[in-house]
Design a protein around this nucleic acid. Structure first.
Lengths: 352, 352
DNA sequence: TTGTACGCGTTATCAA
DNA sequence: TTGATAACGCGTACAA
């Protein structure tokens, strides 16, 4: 159906067409080294007429660099958070001439291992983990001489990490709610104890968010009520279903003294909360205010969700910067955490 | 921070460690050719102790295959549709030992061109376009001897296409609505005239959907009312905003004889419709029924959206199958269109 | 200012 | 049954 034709010319072919050696062609290509004006012109026309394109495999074999990085993701189709950070690294990589290979482990260590092996075979120059499962897999890379970088969450204290400061935005969210007069504020979020916390050194995302919640309450002189805290999974990694938020909200609505505001630490969770409120015949924000986290689904929900936005693309870029530093052998101290910030939309209002 | 160490061993090193030639190692690796039992054992232990991993670049240089394909996407972060088909090709590719490079053109031909050039340098074995912008870019690949495959929409009649049959699901949607007693059914969708239709041979996605709408009306004896048809963009490719559905719905609600059901041909559009209905203080499905298309945002919306599901992963797999056939030089006739189907959720009910 | 020649790690042919 | 050996296309040290 399509027209197959000539494969791209080689350096050798360009050279002979220009009547020079490959070294000369290489010199004009690189733009360094001495080349006579006349030779340069001849080479340039040969380059143009052959439509020469360097062969990345040959170059990589020679330079021992693939100009390629691997990006291990948790589940790109389940939470839009991942696509957004993936795009961030993609873009940063593109600007520096790198391409990236994606791989999803869906929370399974064996799968992650498989992906790591593929990355090694491809001789990627570094790999980013937007959430690693098993530290051993990072070590596998290190053993193969490939830098491993962690993004968002750390599975090991031995590898650099680009992360976000969850507290800033979460505190802002609480301040917003208490400022609106809410006193019964529920927390619907990920359970810190369910997250694999391989290295006690690291405070996990969940810890930060729940701590900010408690601090926010305290700052407003509201006492902490464990009945208002619902912890669990964010969603199902296997099938992507997100009914957790719905269930949590149903339970919260059944409380004798139900909350007037909900702080859900993931937009997917918040989406379920919104559905439960709707089913109960209540209006948002009139009867109940809801704040989400991430800023992924937020704009598309009904009503548009006030949420704590994560700088997802920037996080990806920060991860790539770390990778680049590691590739070039420079220092790879963890960069300062990126800031989250509250984005106001229409799911929050004065307490009833 | 991380521990860099030995780069992976080469075939040569394995061979000398096993006291054989590289050819023998290659034979046990490939599992074909004669190898004495004794030599095999020696090679195998050497393989294990060195932790040998083939170097994909070296292999690619030799075999003239990269075992890599390119996947050009429109805008992976804007419409979840793209991530889902990307995952489909990724998965199919993985099973056959391929890796895939992604690239987003965001609707811009120059950008697509740039991506194509990168793909050529990487010597990908084929490239999939989940929606090509400029046919010239496909020809560029063909000229470089790289098969180009189209997915979802065709920009040219000269390249194979894996697509979906939009009509089946759309007709089912209309039947569902008319069966529920709806007579005033609005169509909110993409404008066929805004889609670049480079090749008049192809009927575009938009044509199919709107034709199914008209047929569905006709089948139920309902006359077509142009006032109920709202055509435009699906969303903004640059910033991803999706306020179109909201605006369309506002206009529809302002009609003297407003519709009781909406058929929106994209979940993002439907999300906007839902928001407008909510703001008008109406209930879904009590006052108005809404059907979406794609099955991307659907589960997370309020209420969960009845929608025409596209087999996104299967579409991606079909695209990869086409690519594989082209790579192996086999016949690449377009496969039969995949079917769409109506997924019932809670945004549709009896006409008021 | 230019060209020769080697090696990167594989695969594959051919002779032993 | 096995081992030399020649590419694949590029970068670069070195010689001219």
């Amino acid at each position: 159906m399509e027209v197959r034709s000539t494969k791209s010319a080689t350096l050798q072919e360009v050279a002979s067409q220009a009547g020079v050696s490959t070294a000369t062609v290489a010199r004009v290509l690189k733009g360094r080294g001495y080349v006579s004006a006349e030779a340069r012109v001849r080479v340039e026309t040969a380059l143009k007429s052959t439509g020469y394109r360097p062969n990345a495999m040959a170059r990589g074999l020679r330079t021992q660099r693939s100009d390629t990085i691997g990006h291990m993701l948790t589940a790109i189709t389940v939470n839009p958070f991942f696509v957004n950070v993936a795009r961030g690294v993609e873009e940063a990589a593109f600007e520096r001439g790198y391409k990236t290979f994606l791989f999803n482990h869906n929370g399974r260590a064996e799968r992650e291992r498989l992906g790591v092996e593929r990355f090694i075979e491809r001789r990627v120059d570094a790999v980013l983990f937007t959430t690693a499962v098993e530290p051993e897999n990072l070590r596998l890379l290190a053993a193969a001489g490939i830098p491993a970088i962690q993004v968002e969450r750390a599975a090991s204290a031995d590898f650099p990490l680009a992360r976000v400061d969850n507290a800033v935005g979460a505190r802002e969210a609480l301040r917003h709610l208490t400022g609106l007069g809410h006193r019964r504020i529920a927390f619907v979020g990920g359970d810190p104890d369910r997250v694999a916390r391989r290295d006690p050194l690291y405070r996990v995302v969940e810890d930060e968010r729940i701590a900010a919640y408690r601090e926010g309450l305290e700052a407003a002189g509201i006492s902490f009520d464990p009945a208002l805290v619902r912890l669990g999974r964010y969603y199902d990694l296997a099938d992507g279903s997100g009914s957790e938020g719905y269930r949590h909200m149903q339970a919260l609505l059944a409380l004798p003294d139900r909350p007037t505001a909900i702080f859900a630490t993931c937009d997917i969770l918040a989406a379920g909360v919104l559905q439960a409120v709707y089913d109960a015949g209540l209006r948002i924000p009139h009867d109940i205010s809801v704040i989400g986290f991430d800023d992924t689904l937020a704009v598309n929900l009904t009503p548009p969700l006030t949420t704590v936005a994560q700088p997802m693309a920037a996080l990806g870029r920060a991860g790539f910067a770390l990778a680049l530093a590691a590739i070039e052998g420079g220092p790879t101290a963890d960069p300062p955490p990126l800031e989250t910030r509250l984005v106001m939309r229409r799911s929050t209002g004065p307490a009833p």
